[in-house]
């Protein structure tokens, strides 16, 4: 293998290559998507999904897993479409409360040494319950400024692409390049040594959960900006999508190994997979199955890359 194509760069490039491959396939099947308007339509939902995937990634970073994210995003979408629209002050307070609730969850999980999977599974009931109370039937309205932001039509490059790049870069610099980010990720890599070095694991976990809650709130707001209304189960699929997206993007379950840029790419890839399958005119019965198969395929490719790493 040449010097430029080392195993490490291949591992980093794999998410991007998967995205390029699926995009090329879509362009081939439906050349009309290769335009400003086409890309806009294709990538419309990328922003809320990318934000949710980033939220999941923060949890993965401290070796936990959030199985309530979809329910949480649904709840924040309901708050956005009701309270934030009717009485903005109450809406902002409620959304801030959601972030605080996530921070408290992080503290609870750390202090009582609880399994995040079970706690978040239980919390998913709570989130849906609150969402049903706020918005018993589908409806609500998107606040104008969110609607305006989500339907921006900048010159040359469609808004979803700009937004995805901005999200990826901000989180990349915040988590991967800053001093604080190193400590946060270190808590996933080797909690003991981070603690011995004088950092509070409790504070780290609370910070990560709060960040996750914050991006969950952003995801719900962005989603309402696109759909203009909400219901209590609007983002149910986001739990699985966010986990799959983060993993596709190169995040690992343990060791604080995550990649914000990869997460955004993974989320977009998964979203495009759905479009790709419908352009293929695949029997809709197999849509979910095909997404599972693609996930397995990418993971298999990663194993192949890792194996060649060991050999060399």
């Amino acid at each position: 293998m040449s010097r430029f194509l080392t195993v490490n760069t291949m591992r980093t490039l794999l998410p991007a290559l998967s995205l390029a491959a699926i995009l090329a396939a879509i362009f081939y099947l439906q050349p009309r998507t290769m335009s400003y308007f086409g890309l806009n339509l294709l990538l419309n939902l990328a922003i809320p999904i990318a934000l949710a995937t980033i939220a999941q990634m923060f949890i993965l970073c401290v070796n936990d897993l959030d199985l309530s994210l979809g329910a949480f995003v649904s709840l924040t979408a309901c708050i956005t479409a009701t309270w934030l629209y009717d009485t903005p002050v109450l809406g902002v307070l409620a959304l801030a409360g959601c972030v605080l609730a996530y921070a408290a969850l992080g503290a609870l999980i750390h202090l009582r040494n609880l399994p995040s999977i079970v706690v978040t599974l239980g919390m998913s009931f709570v989130w849906v319950g609150v969402a049903v109370l706020i918005l018993p039937t589908p409806g609500g309205k998107a606040p104008e400024w969110i609607r305006a932001l989500m339907t921006l039509k900048p010159a040359l490059i469609p808004f979803p692409i700009i937004a995805a790049v901005v999200i990826a870069i901000i989180v990349h610099f915040g988590l991967m390049k800053s001093a604080a980010g190193v400590v946060l990720r270190g808590a996933g890599g080797n909690p003991l040594s981070v603690e011995r070095a004088g950092w509070s694991l409790l504070r780290i976990k609370v910070t990560m959960y709060a960040l996750s809650g914050f991006f969950g709130v952003l995801s719900g707001m962005a989603l309402v900006g696109l759909t203009t209304s909400a219901d209590a189960n609007i983002a149910e699929r986001y739990t699985l999508l966010s986990i799959a997206g983060a993993i596709l993007g190169g995040s690992q379950f343990v060791g604080g190994r995550v990649s914000p840029i990869g997460a955004v790419i993974g989320a977009v890839t998964l979203l495009l997979t759905g479009s790709f399958l419908s352009f293929l005119r695949l029997n809709p019965d197999w849509q979910i199955g095909a997404q599972g198969a693609i996930l397995i395929l990418v993971l298999a490719l990663r194993v192949l890359i890792d194996r060649s790493d060991k050999r060399s």
Binding site: G122, M123, S124, F125, V126, G129, V130, V132, L133, P136
Partner: peptide
């Protein structure tokens, strides 16, 4: 239904 879900989860 909403309160039932909240209590179950909590």
């Amino acid at each position: 239904a909403g309160y039932r879900l909240i209590f179950t989860g909590a």
